[in-house]
Design a protein around this nucleic acid. Sequence first.
DNA 1: ACATAATTGTACAACGATGAACAAAAAGCA
DNA 2: TGCTTTTTGTTCATCGTTGTACAATTATGT
Lengths: 163, 163
Amino acid sequence: MNKKQVTTEHHHFPWDHPRFRSWIAVARACQLMQQALTRALAHLDVKPPHLDILINLYRFEGITQQELARKLLVGRSNMSMLLPQLEKRGLIERRGDERDKRILRLSLTSEGRTLTEEAMEIQTALIDKSLAADTIDECTVIAQSMERLITVLLKEDAEISEN
Amino acid sequence: MNKKQVTTEHHHFPWDHPRFRSWIAVARACQLMQQALTRALAHLDVKPPHLDILINLYRFEGITQQELARKLLVGRSNMSMLLPQLEKRGLIERRGDERDKRILRLSLTSEGRTLTEEAMEIQTALIDKSLAADTIDECTVIAQSMERLITVLLKEDAEISEN
DNA sequence: ACATAATTGTACAACGATGAACAAAAAGCA
DNA sequence: TGCTTTTTGTTCATCGTTGTACAATTATGT
C-alpha cells in the first residue's frame, strides 16, 4: 500500500491538480485582500477602485480616460462613472486637450496627491503584513509567474478583439 | 552617477517595493483570469460564481447555504439569490434537514454533476494553459504563499467579528 | 418551563460594473 | 475637399453583490 505506483498521475479531480490548487488559492487570497483593503481604506472614504485610479494618476500624469481604463482592465463607461465623483471631491482634475478635443487629460490635485500617498501607505502596509512570511525571492517568483500569465491572457484578448 | 550609493533601499514609491509589485501582478492576473473564465464558460450558461458553487457541492455533498457562503467568502444573501436559480435549472437540490428545520442541505442532481464536470474541465484547461510556463515547484511556492496569506487574513476577520 | 440570545435563510433597497447605443471629434481615403 | 471609419467619452438599462431588517427555528441560561 501507499507505494508510488504511477509516475504519470492522472489527477481525476481538479483539486488534486497542482496548478488548479495554486490558482484556487490565488483567487481566494485576492478576494480576502480586497475585503481587507476595503476595510483598511474605509476611514479615508476611498474604495479599492478609487485607489487604483489615484495610483495610476500619481504615476502617469496627464493620462486619458481611455488609457486609464485599459490599464485597469475595466470598461470606459466605468471611468465615466467614477472620475466625476473624484473630480467633485477635488481629488483630480480633467482638462480637455487643445490638439484633440475628444480626450480629457487627467491629473491629481495637491489634495488628491496627499490622499493618494496616505492610501498607498495603508495598502503597502497591508500587503507587507500579508506577505511577511515570504522571502523576496519567493515574491519575485510569484511576480514573474503572474506577469507571464498576464502576458498570455492579454495576448489572447488582443486576438479576440481583432475578430 | 548611477553608482550604488545606498545598501538599505528606502522604496520611496510603492512600485519599487517587491512585495507591492508582486501583489499588483497577482491582482491583475486574477482580474484577467476571471474575464477569461467568464468567456470560456459562456456557452454553458455558467458564470464563475455559479461554478464556484457547483464545485463546492461536488466536493461537499449535503453542505448548508451558510457553510457554502463561508467557503466562498460571500454573504448569505448572495446564496439566497443564486441557489434558487440553479435549482430552477435542475442542477441542484435543496432539502430541509429533519433535525434542524432552519437549514437546507444542498446537493447536485445528476445533470448538475455532469455540467460541473464539463465546466471543471474547461477551467482546468484554462488554468493549465495560463500557468504552463511554471514548474510544479513554482506552483507549489505560489500555493503555499497564498495559503499563508489566506490564513493570516482569515484570522484577522475572525478577530474583527468577535468585537 | 420559560425568556432571551443566537443561528439560518429570505426580501429588499442601494451601490458598482458592464455593454450597447449615442454624439462629438479626428483620421483615413477617394 | 467631402465621405466614411475610428476614437473618445457619456448615458442608460441590466445584472450581480452587499448589508440590513425580518421570520422561523434552535440553543442557552436561570
